[in-house]
């Protein structure tokens, strides 16, 4: 297993694309979070914003780049035919997917942590200037605060799960562009669907099973009682999607001719 992981790490490290994409994850996440913080204002009368969630909103943009990175790690091999060399060298196909998952988890953890920390820092610096002051009930964003720490750590885990979900889909779909379209479609479909339906029960049900809405519940720090499911349970729903995608991808990788 060490050999496989090392091989996958070498591929990711030396191939073009991974470096710029990891940088893009950090830059896009932090930039969108900072822009949202700069555009948000809190009147003196107070406001009902979920501040940690607002400060971490860039994760919704960064996840698209994370998905692209993960899709390329698997699907890119099919584009170039490299997959045949890979499977010749490492005939245990499940191990190949596992090795890719390990490497992806590592790099996404690092990039995600940097991105989330940068977002929190940007929000902490920008928001007090826009009326989010202790007087209006919003102390500066701090990781010493339990729910904020949970939101930040949960966001990093969210990005890792998105990477693994995309890896599973790419292993199943094989074409990189199609896989990227499928992943982004599945992710961004759920907020639209939740708005589409009027029936509150159906709405809560869709929220509960959707990877993005449920997964991002881990960022919520206010009005938790009104949400259809708890923060960690929400991340668990995304984890279930990820497990299903990896399982399907792994099975298809074993069964199909490469």
């Amino acid at each position: 297993m060490r050999g496989q992981t090392h091989a996958e790490w070498t591929k990711l490290r030396t191939g073009t694309g991974a470096g710029p994409l990891l940088l893009a994850v950090v830059a896009l996440t932090a930039a969108v979070s900072a822009a949202a913080a700069a555009a948000a204002t809190c009147p003196a009368a107070g406001c009902s914003h979920d501040v940690p969630r607002l400060g971490l909103i860039g994760v919704q943009a960064g996840q698209a780049v994370v998905a692209a990175l993960a899709v390329l790690a698997m699907g890119g091999e099919y584009g170039t035919g490299m997959i045949r060399t890979t499977l010749t060298a490492m005939p245990r196909r499940g191990a190949v997917l596992a090795a890719k998952a390990i490497v992806l988890t590592g790099v996404t953890l690092v990039a995600g942590t940097v991105a989330v920390l940068a977002s929190v820092l940007a929000a902490r610096l920008i928001l007090p200037g826009n009326g989010f002051t202790p007087e209006s009930g919003h102390p500066p964003l701090s990781l010493a605060d339990g729910p904020t720490l949970r939101a930040a750590a949960g966001s990093v885990l969210y990005l890792v799960l998105i990477a693994l979900f995309s890896l599973g889909v790419a292993a199943a779909v094989r074409d990189t562009v199609t896989a990227a379209g499928v992943v982004l479609g599945v992710l961004y479909l759920s907020p639209i669907l939740v708005r589409l339906v009027q029936d509150p029960d159906a709405q809560r049900f869709l929220y509960r099973i959707s990877p993005m809405d449920a997964g991002l519940t881990v960022q919520a720090t206010t009005g938790l009682a009104d949400l259809p499911l708890g923060p960690w349970a929400g991340l668990g729903v995304l984890a279930a999607w990820t497990a299903a995608a990896l399982l399907a991808g792994g099975l298809l990788l074993r069964l199909r001719d490469a």
Binding site: V32, A36, T41, D50, R53, Y188
Partner: peptide
């Protein structure tokens, strides 16, 4: 993404 952020997220109206 901007459409989804603007219509279905915690982003303030402004």
């Amino acid at each position: 993404l901007p459409h989804i952020l603007a219509t279905a997220s915690v982003l303030p109206v402004d």
